[in-house]
Nucleic acid binder design. Structure first.
Lengths: 150, 150
DNA sequence: TTAATAAAGGATATAAGGGTCTTTTATTAG
DNA sequence: CTAATAAAAGACCCTTATATCCTTTATTAA
């Protein structure tokens, strides 16, 4: 078989990194120790400079918090912890992912469905609704309780 | 909000084009009229040369059939019509799409799940199973009966 | 056999995502 | 105040997906 090897994906790499980073911060930051970009890059095996860009973006969008200087780093405020996962996906991959047609048809909708519309919508909305109801704190808690590797 | 505007997707553009093209061929080719690349490019509003590449790939993989020369073009053999949609996705986007972890973690599985594993799997496997059971002929029939725009 | 047609194939160009490097700004300890 | 630290910011590069162009091969009609 001849393939493209294009390896399509649901979430971009930036988004995958962002989600893992947020969970990492939740798991490793304490009042006495903020998590640094270097530490995170090592712990998650993500290129440091690329991760930094993503962390900047999350900070600008107030998904995570940061302080500069010695002993500086990233942490989660109470407000941050209540941010839901779909928001992170939206920031990293845009608002279209859970709304756009699988076949890329702009006019596709439930009244004018594309050939795969209902198949796709059923499962897409299912995932989306779960991400909308799951916030960072809850996600981090699950990861901790189930001892899940990130 | 500052976003990437990366507009992530489930299926690559090549794959979206491929699926639409296959349905187009099913709908428009007859024993007396084969569908040409130009006609398809116009009808589907896809760049002709890019579409040609995709059609070549589908032909090589025996998803569609073609003949050269005057009155040549693309059509579906009986064997082609029985090809299932997941096969087209596999050819265009590789075999990883419906198997890889949402967060890109290689070690993620049901026994060692990532934070989003079960949420994602439900979505992904559901769609995948439908695509595995839906062949080209059936898809084209639905499109025709429901008068769906492609 | 020749001209016309249309797919196949190869090479190349463009845009976006992914990744790296350097400089600037803010903070803290001494 | 100064030196050290670490995030913020901007410029840049590489790879891949997307898109285009040009040549070759196969087929048909005249």
């Amino acid at each position: 078989m001849t393939t493209n090897q294009s390896e399509s994906h649901v979430l971009s790499k930036s988004c995958q990194y962002a989600l893992r980073a947020v969970v990492y911060i939740a798991a490793h930051s304490t009042t006495t120790h903020l998590v640094g970009a270097q530490e995170m890059a090592d712990g998650l095996d993500i290129p440091k400079h690329f991760l930094s860009k993503i962390l900047q973006q999350l900070t600008r969008n107030q998904v995570i918090s940061s302080t500069k200087g010695p002993h500086g780093g990233f942490f989660l405020s109470k407000e941050n912890e209540r941010i839901t996962i779909d928001r992170i996906v939206e920031i990293m991959d845009g608002p279209g992912l859970f709304k756009a047609c699988v076949l890329g048809l702009p006019q596709c909708s439930s009244t004018k469905p594309c050939p795969l519309h209902f198949q796709a919508v059923e499962y897409r909305d299912g995932l989306y609704n779960k991400l909308k109801r799951l916030n960072i704190k809850e996600l981090a808690l699950v990861v901790h309780q189930e001892n899940i590797k990130i």
